[in-house]
Amino acid sequence: MTRILLKYKKTVIRDIIMEKKLLTIGRKSDNDIFIDNQAVSGHHAVIKIEGDGLFIEDSNSLNGTYLEGDGLFIEDLNSLNGTYLNGQKVSKGQLYHGDVILIGVYTLEIISDKIREKDKKSFTIRGRSMEETFVIAPYDKKKMLISTDKNIQDPLGGFIVIEGSTDSKEYQFKDRVSAIGKEKGSAIKLKGLFAPKVAALVNRRKEGYFITPSSNKKLKINGKEIDHRYDLKDGDIVEVAKLKLQFYVKE
């Protein structure tokens, strides 16, 4: 006989005897195990008997049940709706005597005659709703980011003034968004009565720099007129408001 104890902290709230082949768990009242808690989804998970084994399975696409530990029986059912084992998606796990499932602040404890083999460590199954935002442990994070953990550095570049009257001959562009114009605070400040307030915007992103002409302002890159966003490359010649500039990126 299999029993499931629903506990809050150390208090047993319900003692459920597994009489059916399937028990549903969730926040909605039509579940066999009904847990009134925000962190639990309407239909969160099911515990079921298959063959002579007892399993827990995720119920819907917004649900996530987190499984931790090794030596665990997992079956991947190719679903978008995930159950995660150490940050990787699984959708099913086999349950043994003494296992604990954590859902919100409640726990479900399994009492069964199925004893896990000695060499397999006992594991914990954690339940958390995917609808809620939550933080994952750095260990899981590393696993989810398969690629090497190289440090991505922001590119650093700027402009060298080839022609035109400016305060300096070279400008480094450090801000995420900076401007070329007459407006106070512009990275390259234009002079003259008729100089535009903002001639062009320069954006600095992880993937590189790009330049966008201000509405109705003329901007030439390598001699060609540009009327929308342009991704800057090392060595590009930019002509804007009587200035001729060369873009550079430091390695």
């Binding site: 935002t133 933080v135 903002v198």
Partner: peptide, 28 residues
């Protein structure tokens, strides 16, 4: 993506956290 709500950092879940800082010059 269905894991949009998975954060790698949050305030208050560990004794130390490093915030991302940034500065900018503002325009009229």
């Amino acid at each position: 993506s269905n894991i949009k709500n998975l954060l790698t950092k949050a305030l208050g879940i560990a004794p130390e956290v490093k915030a991302d800082l940034n500065e900018l010059t503002l325009f009229d």
